[in-house]
Amino acid sequence: MNLSRDENTNGSPAPRRVELRDIRDEDLIVMVQEGHKKAFDELVARYKGRLFSFILRMVKDPTLAEELTQETLIRVYIHAAKYREIAKFSTWVFTIATNLVRNKMRQRSRRPRVISLNPAPDDDEMPVDPPDMTADPSEGIHREELANLINDATSRIPEKYRIPFLLREVEQLSYEEIQQVTGLKLGTVRSRINRARNKFRQLIKPMLKNETLLHELERIEARAAEEKDKDF
């Protein structure tokens, strides 16, 4: 599949260059099946954040979430040939991620948690992110407090309610897509999302009464809107 067409030499208007970001997920995975590695890079760029966000809220461990996100994307690449367009690509990806998360949580519940006495990192060669010196420290603290409260509340929702809830709230999958990912009936998906929302509301009540956190939420949303405007 030739994505970038060369300009004509006879002076006729050049055909529009097809950018990878304009291509649907389902077409990109077909390109991956044909051996286009750039198409896989585009899929990774689209899904890495979504997958990490979903998995982190499921397992509540950043290192494990990163590992499972990588594992999901590797499986997408390795098993790309198995994908058939009977379902949306996002449904397929989140089915893989959900199965991996479920397996890992099952393993963790069977084994006692081991805490290493030697906290030396495995990846000494990894580049270290420099701290953002321009950010307001108090703002960072409030944002972290807000994030911790939300993550803590999410992790306390029972697992069977949490998966459909996160797929809906974080990934904004439709009820039908959640049904395909989880294998549940449509009515069950609906009721579980409803129960999870009620539970979540009870758990974030401290935030609902905290003016500082509400103000922080508004500030985050305002900054996100500004960045969105800049992109356009």
Binding site: K48, G49, F52, S53, L56, R57, P62, A65, E66, T69, R143, L146, A147, I150, N151, T154, E169, V170, R197, F200, R201, I204, M207, L217, I220, E221, A224
Partner: peptide, 12 residues
């Protein structure tokens, strides 16, 4: 709750 959830999306 939905707004807070989307505002605190963790970064990779």
């Amino acid at each position: 709750g939905r707004r807070a959830m989307s505002a605190t999306t963790p970064e990779l």
